[in-house]
Design a protein around this nucleic acid. Structure first.
Lengths: 243, 243
DNA sequence: CACCATTCAGAGGAAACTCTGAGCAAGTTC
DNA sequence: GAACTTGCTCAGAGTTTCCTCTGAATGGTG
């Protein structure tokens, strides 16, 4: 993977983006930390609000991935403490689905964002990239656009075009395509795709990846040079057809 | 989001507009400060009149968002003090709905403006943009007109036309449309729209956004190419349809 | 006081989406 | 070429999300 090579998650001065991950489930923080490290971030984890506030002062993160429900503190209080030490810090909240309407209100006004559990890794990474880009923390060479051959994906507008023609995608189709396009010319196994694009609690089979690849091909590759290629026994790869 | 990139809230010399926020409710100043920071402003907060006057001298703000009812001083006195140090400063008053409008009326004659509580963030930001524009503090590339395809919104005249034909909108409809048109080709979640367009004390559900989008569509998109598009599971986006 | 416009909650129905299962096609191994 | 593995696609059930109709409460206006 090594998104670091693509230079996406980087500070203006070229040093690694610093991310603090706060959640009381060690499984979750581990997975997030691993994914973020792989993206080239410097990562620190905390299991409760007190540890988060402490790390906020000492570790000086650029962004915080913060569980809304912590054993000792309310998410909003943690945010307040963090902001008092570092006003510019970005915060991405993790919330339960039914807690969304509750007290989340107002946080998006400050430029922060949230993701509902269960989420996919790509969803969290994409949101975090969005926050950092908007905070000027992230050199955006091509802005928010991904391109492979004549296929273009605009993340903000959630718009996909092939040869200038608009293509409608569902949420899952879009996330799958984004993951493929973020890793062009690299074979991605179905297991990898499943781990990244589908929620971490999804118990289904890799068969679902095949199904969604077939959906994508029908919408994207139909009538054009194919961009999504099957590597039998290995997975899929997105690239322009060989010359 | 990220109005900063659009270059709206900027001084003639390109540096950040300096805004002082004065209110005794910390929740309110926090939200306002966060939103203004996101717009690219340099923000300072004060909780009472004395602190406001002190900050007025030291922080040298271009504009002040000032609560009319402060624990220690009258709003008019604060204004007087601020003006003595910096005669050119813009002031946006925050007042209770039933507050004396007669005294406020004299204020607006001086080029200042006011907003009644409870207000929406977009309302405050729009008024502030207006003040700064009139004070020459704000390069206004397209003046006060927003345009998407053949849909035109005039902020000062509060007038909306589609293909030259006038459209009557209620207050909420207008604010929703303005927010959408200020962020064309960007998917806005219902949570984001709620936080920006509805009052900060509104406790309602995202359902209300759907309802008002349906009102807007009936008035704006009926009989034309649709400009307001639903992005299922994400929110809404305003853009001209792709041919 | 009556009238009208506006705002908002609730519920029903429509539409879109996700995922399972099964059959078929294509490639691989012997 | 037969047997097996792997990948592709269709059809349909179940769920989620969205749209819109109703009606109540509010506020302004003649």
């Amino acid at each position: 993977m090594n998104q670091a090579i693509t230079g996406q998650m980087r500070r203006p001065d070229g040093t690694a983006v610093r991310v603090l991950v706060v959640d009381d489930e060690p499984d979750l923080t581990e997975v997030l930390a691993a994914a973020l490290t792989q993206e080239g971030c410097a990562v620190r984890c905390a299991a409760d609000g007190a540890a988060a506030v402490a790390a906020g002062g000492e570790f000086a993160p650029d962004a915080v991935v913060l569980d809304w429900m912590l054993p000792d503190m309310d998410g909003l209080d943690v945010l307040r403490e963090l902001r008092s030490a570092q006003p510019e810090v970005c915060v991405l909240f993790l919330t339960a689905r039914d807690a969304v309407e509750d007290r989340i209100a107002g946080i998006t006004a400050g430029g922060d964002d949230y993701v509902t559990k269960p989420f996919s890794l790509e969803e969290v990474l994409a949101r975090l990239r969005g926050l950092l880009r908007r905070a000027g923390m992230n050199r955006a060479p091509s802005g928010n656009r991904l391109q492979v051959a004549d296929l273009v994906l605009d993340e903000d507008a959630r718009e996909v075009t092939r040869a200038g023609e608009a293509i409608e995608l569902s949420r899952t189709e879009f996330e799958l395509l984004r993951y493929l396009m973020r890793n062009p010319r690299r074979v991605l196994s179905k297991a990898m795709i499943l781990d990244r694009v589908w929620s971490y609690d999804f118990g289904g089979q890799a068969h679902i990846v095949e199904l969604y690849v077939s959906y994508l091909r029908k919408k994207i590759d139909a009538g054009h040079q194919p961009l999504i290629h099957t590597v039998r026994g290995m997975g899929y790869v997105m690239k322009a057809a060989k010359p």
